[in-house]
Design a protein around this nucleic acid. Structure first.
Length: 557
RNA sequence: UUCCCGGUUGUGUAAUGGUAGCACCACAGAUUCUGGCUCUGUUAGUGGGGGUUCGAGUCCUCCCCGGGAAGCCA
């Protein structure tokens, strides 16, 4: 397969190949243009993956451009956080730039448009402008100020810029067509008066360009070849093109892709903010949040996120991707690289009656059956151990092959044991399981090669370490958190989205990893050492995703 | 009612006008010192009607369905 084919076959890359072949563009320059008004999430990751990924694939370059044209909502905190998150995802920008870097050029170009009669200052109120715009089915009407002389508009615009007018008193508009079927072409606003402090330009400006006026021109200044954006800007493309044509400057090609929606996941920035502000979650980095910070803390890896994005692909269809696909990608990666350890989440004591009291022995346990190079670690074994309460039952259902009275199971890496009886407290709750072991089964097999279907994880009572484990599940109980209509998203919070286990017991080998380290808790799932709440010697583990569990599925039926 | 965009198995995504494929999910089985991993197999799709063509998911046409558009947000 040739290089050009390995670049990929999605419709955007295909168009770029065409543009390169036809000579329309000689190189690929892209940009990823977040507004610094919030933390970015997995949906943004798709845009990042596309714009940065395309630049990489075509040996071009991609700039990180902050689209900071609305000073009332943007600030430096978000700039820093977004830079961090993009880097974490694994992308490197050619340069960090800001739309505000181009304010003067944008202003000069606006003057140029006024001078040729393609823009004018309108003095209608916000409400009037809206009323004059018409509706999707009715044409708009010209503003009475539309035929203002060029000189008058120029004068007014300069005075707007000089700060002579209050917010909302005048705007600069492009002069296109108030009856245009595309409402974006009905004399769109280019500048509004905003006496607001900007996080970068300070108080240098009191008029700010709108998205439509700033975006394409910023692309042009940067020599962008392909401007990749969401479907919501499709209706803006004619305007994007119109401005560039009026100016006669470098003309990038805007291409739209479908945004990412995931089942049981809510990505609306506004609602995410509400979750944080109303303390429904702990913060932007809560492991249940779809923010990159949240996912990072949860234990998701940048590589798995990118693999996921690649598997999802792109089109112009609105989609709802199964959240399970992300977990599949995450498991696929971690299965290869995550060290295995044994952790008992809900311990029940097992006493092995025929194992000598006071004796302790050591086994070599492989760290990762998928990777022999990962080596082994020592685990200790003695008369008293703990197993998972779920791994024992007094009345086993059909095809159950965990521990039950009279049944034999293998303790991973150690011996076969057979349950003899149980001990209860006054309430009837089982507090201890008694068992005998087969000394011949040392290491996990016997000379008679008899089959034991069940293999349980366990920890040695003598050296098990108490750890905190946080079991995360989907934040929402509703699959479609995009189209809620009049429903309140708060009504769909999953009460079991976080279950904190404080009495889990871990083998000593699970302790001492750096925060952020990812492990497999055998038979449970993939966990990472929490980067915030972990203390020396007191790890907190976050469950990223569970292992596939075909038994749970089967027994639920 | 206007303009723009879209519609391929349950989900997502492929198919110079020429055998509708891949992945996830689901299901069945094999294997297994993780009921994990791995392996094998199964179910299931071109929204509808006309037309062009030897041949249509692909081109034309009409219809149906879904989404977007009336911010001085991006």
């Amino acid at each position: 397969m040739s290089d050009s084919q390995s670049v990929g076959t999605d419709f955007i890359r295909a168009r770029i190949v065409d543009d390169l072949n036809s000579g329309r563009f000689s190189r690929v320059q892209t940009r990823w243009p977040p507004e610094p008004n919030g933390y970015i999430h997995i949906g943004h990751a798709k845009g990042i993956w596309l714009s940065f990924g395309i630049a990489e694939d075509f040996a071009g370059a991609c700039k990180l451009r902050f689209d900071d044209t609305n000073p009332t909502r943007e600030n430096q905190e978000f700039v820093t956080a977004i830079e961090e998150d993009v880097r974490w995802l694994g992308y490197r920008w050619q340069e960090v730039v800001f739309a505000s870097d181009y304010y003067q050029q944008l202003f000069d170009w606006a003057v140029q448009l006024i001078e040729v009669g393609s823009a004018y200052v309108d003095s209608l109120s916000r409400e009037q402008i809206s009323a004059y715009r018409g509706t999707p089915t009715e044409p708009g009407r010209d503003s009475p100020f539309r035929d203002r002389t060029i000189g008058e508009s120029l004068d007014l615009f300069n005075r707007m810029r000089a700060g002579e007018f209050a917010d909302g008193t005048h705007v600069l508009r492009a002069k296109i067509d108030m009856a245009h079927p595309n409402i974006n072409m009905r004399d769109p606003v280019m500048y509004r008066i905003l006496h607001a402090h900007h996080h970068r330009t300070g108080d240098a400006w009191c008029i700010y360009p709108t998205y439509d006026w700033a975006h394409g021109q910023s692309d042009s200044i940067e020599g962008v070849s392909h401007s990749i954006c969401g479907l919501e800007f499709e209706n803006h493309r004619p305007l994007y093109d119109w401005f560039l044509d009026q100016l006669g400057v470098w003309h990038p090609q805007q291409i739209e892709y479908n945004n990412l929606n995931i089942t049981y996941t809510m990505m609306s920035k506004r609602r995410l903010r509400a979750l944080v502000e109303e303390r429904i979650v702990d913060g932007w980095d809560d492991p249940r949040m779809p923010t990159l910070r949240g996912m990072r803390r949860r234990g998701y890896t940048p590589t798995a996120i990118r693999a996921f994005l690649e598997k999802v692909g792109l089109s112009k269809t609105e989609v709802m991707v199964d959240a399970g696909l992300l977990d599949f990608c995450q498991r696929e990666e971690l299965n290869r690289v995550a060290p295995r350890v044994m952790v008992v989440l809900d311990p029940i004591k097992v006493v092995i009656s025929n194992y000598p009291d006071g004796r302790q022995e050591t086994f070599d346990a492989e760290n990762n059956p998928e990777d022999p190079a990962a080596g082994t670690r020592a685990i200790t074994f003695s008369r008293e151990i703990y197993i998972e309460r779920d791994d024992f039952t007094e009345d086993p259902p059909p095809k159950y092959f965990r521990l039950f009275p009279g049944g034999e199971v293998r303790l991973k890496h150690a011996y076969y044991i057979t349950c003899t009886d149980v001990i209860r407290d006054q309430s009837g709750r089982i507090v201890q399981v008694n068992a005998t072991y087969d000394p011949e089964s040392r290491g996990g097999q016997t000379p008679d090669a008899r089959k034991v279907k069940g293999t349980l994880h366990w920890v040695n009572a003598a050296d098990a370490v108490l750890v905190e484990v946080r079991l995360f599940d989907r934040l929402w109980t509703r699959e479609d958190m995009v189209n809620l209509g009049d429903l309140d998203f708060r009504d769909f919070v999953n009460p079991e989205s976080r279950v904190t286990v404080t009495n889990a017991l871990a083998e000593p080998g699970a302790i001492g990893f750096d925060p952020g380290t990812r492990l497999q808790f055998m038979r449970h799932g993939y966990f990472c050492v929490d980067e915030i709440d972990t203390r020396p010697g007191a790890p907190v583990f976050n469950r990223t995703t569970s292992l596939r569990d075909t038994w749970a599925k089967a027994s639920n039926r």
